[in-house]
């Protein structure tokens, strides 16, 4: 037999679950998650061109990009061993396009950087919630 407090708690859990599902549905409509890999060292021109054409092609309002650069190691190895530099970019498409030059520069640096509606980080730490609940 459940107590009133338990029934109350259960209804909170159910409501929380319903809200979570609605959030996920809206998230999917708004945010495009995409991996972009470069088989070379970070190159300003190449990154800018690819990012520009990619953003112009997508209809999503927000993008969640996992950009990585594969770089061959200099040691002579049997297999073409590569190291990976990974940068996560989360932000509003419009803002990224407006500030593309600065943002590409930040992506190449790979350091954590946050602006009004864009976040760049070596870790996957930003999501739409960070920018909507400011």
């Amino acid at each position: 037999m459940e107590t009133i407090a338990e029934i109350r708690l259960r209804s909170f859990f159910i409501t929380d679950d319903i809200i979570q599902k609605e959030i996920q549905k809206l998230d999917k409509k708004l945010v495009l998650s995409q991996e972009i890999s470069f088989h070379s060292k970070p190159n300003y021109k190449e990154v800018k061109e690819l990012l520009h054409s990619f953003l112009n092609r997508t209809k999503f309002t927000w993008v969640d990009l996992d950009i990585y650069f594969l770089v061959k190691t200099e040691r002579p190895v049997l297999f073409p061993r590569r190291t990976k530099t990974e940068v996560f970019v989360f932000g509003k498409k419009k803002v990224i396009l407006e500030n593309i030059e600065e943002i590409v520069g930040r992506i190449i640096c790979g350091k954590r950087w946050i602006k009004k509606e864009v976040g760049i980080s070596p870790k996957q730490e930003f999501n739409i919630k960070n920018f909507l609940i400011l």
Binding site: F12, I19, I23, L30, I128, L132, I133
Partner: peptide, 21 residues
Amino acid sequence: TGEEMKLKKLYIKKKKIENKI
């Protein structure tokens, strides 16, 4: 946008429910 506002409201609602939990 309208959808972003809706999402923002949902996040706020979720935060309130989580506090109640």
